[in-house]
């Protein structure tokens, strides 16, 4: 490689590579031009409806004025972020967002797994099928209806308010009290998503090797030991993957439900970053500030997902990418 004679060789091999690539491209176009034509509407759609809004994020670094547009507005760089960090609501929003998602994770993550395990122990196929079908039902109901029913149950005289009164809480309608907001939010989420979230575990359970159970039985393991040593290890990869995905959604507490459920009376515990973005952005038309808050939220989310995936990969070889 050091000798002068090899220089022309390098050129020719580079040329050869280029020629080969050109040929491959030509071949690809000849065979697949129709596929690329089909790709055009897809690329155009994703560009307009996903990538243009991503570009719109630069608003976060501007003092955006509608009249001046994105290109003409004044650049203020990190001022919106600094304003947010210094805002009186900053710690309240961070606290509410983290608490509702951590509690949500702790309480709602195990239920679908337990439900799937219980269903797995049922011998009657028919009972299993019917129970499972009933469990999906709430998933098909809209958030507006779920919150409507929740309101009905938690008004004064509603069934949940009555039950709380039985346990000595007689301060009235649960829906308008901050100390109840998180429980109601998470509880109704569990009600709505338990059956749907269990589908994946039920199918994972069905694919656990039956011979392992027989082997465990021959070794003298009872049902409980079989569950502990065969079933749970069998569905562990599924559990870990779903856990990582959940962690990636940590700060993504859905604003749609919060907006329907909360009221100024419950902001103290209910207001989260995304509902604040909505109120400030759409309500007060404070576009660049709320875009900055939204971006901050997305970045934190992405970091959590990245760290969770790294930790999982080093502990168990299970990874999203």
């Amino acid at each position: 490689m050091q000798s002068t004679g090899s220089a022309p060789n390098i050129v020719t091999s580079a040329e050869r590579i280029r020629a080969r690539r050109k040929k491959a491209i030509r071949r690809d176009l000849r065979l697949n031009w129709a596929v690329y034509v089909m790709a055009i509407p897809v690329v155009v759609y994703f560009f307009i409806f996903y990538y243009i809004p991503m570009g719109g994020i630069v608003m976060a670094f501007e003092n955006f004025k509608i009249r001046k547009g994105i290109l003409g507005s004044e650049w203020i760089w990190f001022q919106n972020f600094i304003d947010f960090f210094n805002s009186v609501y900053f710690w309240r929003l961070i606290r509410n967002t983290i608490l509702i998602s951590v509690y949500g994770l702790i309480y709602s993550f195990p239920f679908p797994i337990i439900f799937a395990l219980c269903l797995n122990e049922v011998r009657s196929r028919k009972f299993k099928k019917v129970t499972q079908t009933i469990s999906y039902m709430p998933y098909f109901i809209s958030i507006v209806v779920v919150v409507s029913i929740l309101n009905d149950f938690c008004k004064s005289g509603g069934i949940l308010t009555q039950i709380a009164a039985l346990f000595g809480d007689t301060k009235g309608a649960l829906i308008s009290r901050p100390e109840w907001f998180r429980s109601l939010y998470i509880g109704s989420n569990i009600w709505q998503h338990l059956g749907y979230n269990s589908i994946i575990y039920i199918s994972a359970l069905a694919s656990v090797d039956q011979e392992l159970y027989e082997a465990a039985y021959i070794d003298g393991a009872g049902r409980w030991r079989q569950t502990l040593h065969v079933t749970i290890p069998g569905i562990l990869p599924t559990i870990v993957i779903l856990l990582i995905m959940r962690l990636g959604q940590m700060m993504n507490v859905g604003y749609e439900k919060t907006i329907l459920m909360y009221s100024p009376a419950t902001y103290e515990t209910a207001d989260i970053i995304s509902s604040y973005v909505y109120r400030v952005g759409i309500g007060d038309a404070n576009y660049s500030y709320s875009t900055a808050v939204d971006l901050f939220n997305s970045i934190i989310n992405f970091l959590i997902l990245y760290v969770a995936n790294r930790v999982s990969r080093s502990l168990s070889d299970i990874s999203l990418w």
Partner: peptide
Amino acid sequence: FRGGLIPGYML
């Protein structure tokens, strides 16, 4: 990753 609420609204 997505643009988020406000950029979507502006679009």
